[in-house]
Simulated scan of single mutants.
Amino acid sequence: MNITRLVVHCSDSPNGRDDSAADIHRWHRGRGWVGIGYHCVIRRDGRVENGRPEFWMGAHVAGHNSTSLGVCLIGCDQFTDAQMQSLERVIHEWKIKYPDAEVCGHYDLDQHKTCPNFDVKDWWSVVSDIDEFNRV
Rank of each mutant, 00 (worst) to 15 (best):
M1T: 15
N2E: 13
I3W: 06
I3T: 12
R5I: 05
R5Y: 13
L6N: 07
L6V: 03
V8A: 04
H9D: 00
H9R: 02
H9V: 00
C10G: 04
S13P: 00
S13Q: 05
S13R: 09
N15P: 08
N15C: 05
D18E: 14
A21C: 12
A21S: 15
D23Y: 12
H25R: 04
H25S: 07
W27H: 09
W27I: 02
G32F: 11
V34W: 02
G35N: 15
G35Y: 12
G35F: 14
I36K: 06
Y38K: 13
C40Q: 01
I42P: 02
I42V: 00
I42K: 05
R43H: 07
D45N: 10
G46M: 09
G46A: 03
R47V: 12
R47A: 15
V48Q: 01
E49N: 08
E49I: 08
N50L: 15
N50M: 10
R52C: 08
P53V: 09
P53G: 05
M57Y: 04
M57D: 06
M57Q: 13
A59N: 10
V61F: 03
A62V: 11
A62I: 00
H64R: 13
H64P: 04
N65K: 09
N65I: 01
N65R: 11
S66N: 11
S66F: 13
S68A: 15
L69H: 08
V71T: 11
V71M: 02
L73K: 07
L73T: 01
I74M: 10
G75R: 07
F79K: 06
T80C: 08
D81N: 02
A82Y: 05
A82F: 02
M84Q: 02
Q85H: 03
Q85G: 01
L87C: 03
E88N: 07
R89P: 01
R89D: 04
H92N: 00
H92G: 04
E93Q: 07
E93N: 01
E93D: 06
W94K: 02
K95Q: 15
K95V: 14
K95D: 14
I96H: 05
I96M: 10
Y98G: 13
Y98H: 12
P99V: 08
D100V: 07
D100P: 14
D100W: 11
A101F: 10
E102P: 11
E102H: 10
V103T: 12
Y107D: 10
Y107W: 13
D108S: 15
D108M: 15
D108G: 14
Q111G: 06
Q111T: 15
H112S: 08
K113P: 05
K113F: 15
T114Y: 13
P116M: 03
P116F: 00
N117R: 10
N117E: 10
F118C: 15
D119E: 08
D119I: 03
D119Y: 11
V120Y: 05
K121F: 12
D122H: 14
D122S: 14
W123H: 01
W124E: 03
W124T: 01
W124P: 01
V126M: 06
V127F: 00
D129N: 14
D129P: 07
N134S: 02
N134C: 07
R135N: 04
